[in-house]
Write a protein that binds this DNA or RNA. Structure first.
Length: 179
DNA sequence: ATTGTGATACAT
DNA sequence: TGTATCACAATA
């Protein structure tokens, strides 16, 4: 499933459910990032302290801080010698737009999960989750519930980058954020 | 040759 | 605001 290039895995993550603790969201927008071949990837210049979890193998959660403010979450693909990851850019509440009432805080909404930084805040993802194995963790999980939002996939260039802008490695579920 | 440090550019 | 990179200094 994840042991393929990120640009191959990315569209397959659409409509999968990402769960963190008692919050969950259905993936409706993703971007793929490669390794040494992709100048926009954090792994482009090899292994560093920050991108270390991109090298831990498929199923690893790679979480990094952007603008010194927002956490962003990626699902790592491929193996240690050939890093790649899928940036999760937007979610909608799981279970057909309704979320189970949670003890305390209000459940995530469409609006507060529409963006890579916002979704991490909504689900409570922080640097503490960097490097977690999605397949074996009981705190975080990635699921195919064989359900999802109907719609076409819109493919286009990645945003917020200065290099590698030619690659059509962004996938958005049409109407995903409006249902 | 290698390692350290301060400035700076920019943010998958 | 954190990080990587670059230029250059210091070490040896």
């Amino acid at each position: 499933m994840l042991e393929r290039p990120a640009h191959d895995v990315a569209p397959d993550l659409i409509n999968k459910v990402l769960r963190v603790g008692h919050h969950a969201g259905r993936i409706v927008e993703v971007e793929a990032y490669g390794g040494l071949d992709d100048p926009a990837s954090h792994a482009y210049r090899g292994r560093t302290k920050r991108n270390n979890s991109m090298f831990l193998g498929p199923g690893t959660l790679y979480v990094y801080l952007i603008y010194g403010v927002h956490w962003c979450a990626n699902v790592v693909c491929l193996g240690p010698g050939n890093p790649g990851a899928v940036l999760i850019r937007a979610l909608v509440p799981a279970s057909r737009g309704r979320t189970t009432p949670t003890a305390g805080g209000s459940p995530p909404t469409v609006q507060n999960m529409s963006g890579p930084g916002k979704l991490c805040r909504a689900l409570g993802i922080t640097g503490a989750h960097d490097g977690i194995d999605l397949m074996s963790s009981d705190q975080v999980g990635l699921f195919d519930d064989r359900d999802g939002v109907d719609g076409r996939l819109i493919v286009g260039p990645r945003v917020g980058i200065t290099r590698g802008t030619d690659l059509p490695w962004r996938w958005i579920l049409e109407h995903g954020l409006s249902r």
